[in-house]
Amino acid sequence: MNYVISLMKEIVRKRKLIWDLAKADFRKRFVGSYFGIVWMLVQPIVTVLIYFFIFQVGFKSVPPVPGVPYVLWLIPGIVPWFYYSEALNCVTGCLQEYSYLVKKVVFQVEILPIIKLISCMLVHAFFAGIMLAVFLCYGRLPMATWIQILYYSFAASMLALAFGYLTSAVNVFFKDMAQIVSICLQFGMWLTPIMYQETMFADKAPWFVTILKLNPFYYVVAGYRDSMLTGNWFWERPRLGIYFWVVTLVIGLVGLRVFKRLRPHFSDVL
């Protein structure tokens, strides 16, 4: 616990350095690219369009929320997932990417995952803005609960960081960890009800609905949809919220413990 407290103090003390490095990391992604930040938007937008045409136009799926077009139901689920998956992938490889900083004795390597997380958060801000614009274009009036996407984005950030401390530390010694994370995220996308509604299994396989809710990211996706579509507040899911934060805290403490144990050997391996 002392380690966690000292890390939080270090984050506060070096907040300007963290912010500057995060902005530099964000800009570095698009250096040398003709279209720059446009590439950041293309893949997610194309993905949303593909799912829209497959499920709503092709299969003519019934909208999970009555009176709400499928695309408006899909976007609040897929936007946080893009952020979470990108953040976890980037954090996992951050120690290799910034190996020159890891080798500096005076540098606090624990802030590298946070730098990567903030860089991904800047990208997420663009997508959140696009999501709001789409809702307005469909004639959806803003609701007070829209502000909750800040809370649920923070929740997704903490879950990615909790896993990220563990995976980034292990990835230094076991290079296949990055591939394992990528594969797990591919499965995770389908084990989270993003493209489908979990109630479709309620009659034939109610046990599967329970399994889906054991996935901590279910809380984030459900929360985004509560905020953008139904107008429900986060305290209306008390048990799910408590479960999410307990799981995230446990994973985070385990990840930090492993990170601290392996940290003295990072510079030798890198």
Rank of each mutant, 00 (worst) to 15 (best):
L214E: 05
G241H: 05
G231V: 10
L256C: 02
F259W: 06
R225H: 08
G255V: 06
R263K: 15
V221C: 00
Y218W: 08
L214Q: 11
F234V: 13
F266Y: 14
N232R: 13
R239V: 12
P216N: 06
G241F: 08
L240V: 05
T248P: 03
F266A: 13
R257N: 12
V269T: 12
M228V: 06
V220K: 00
L262A: 05
V246H: 09
I242Y: 02
V246K: 08
L253Y: 14
R257E: 13
F244P: 00
T230K: 06
G231K: 08
Y243Q: 07
R239E: 15
Y224W: 03
V246A: 06
L262N: 04
P264W: 11
R257D: 12
P238Y: 00
F259R: 03
I251M: 10
R239P: 07
P238A: 01
R239I: 15
W235P: 06
I242R: 05
L229W: 02
R263L: 08
N232H: 14
L240S: 09
R261M: 11
T230C: 05
G241C: 11
A222E: 09
K260Q: 14
L240C: 04
W233C: 06
R257K: 13
E236I: 01
K260H: 14
P264L: 11
F217S: 02
G241V: 05
F266G: 08
V220S: 00
L240G: 07
D268T: 04
N215T: 00
R225G: 09
S267R: 02
P264V: 13
V254D: 12
W245C: 02
R263Y: 08
Y218H: 04
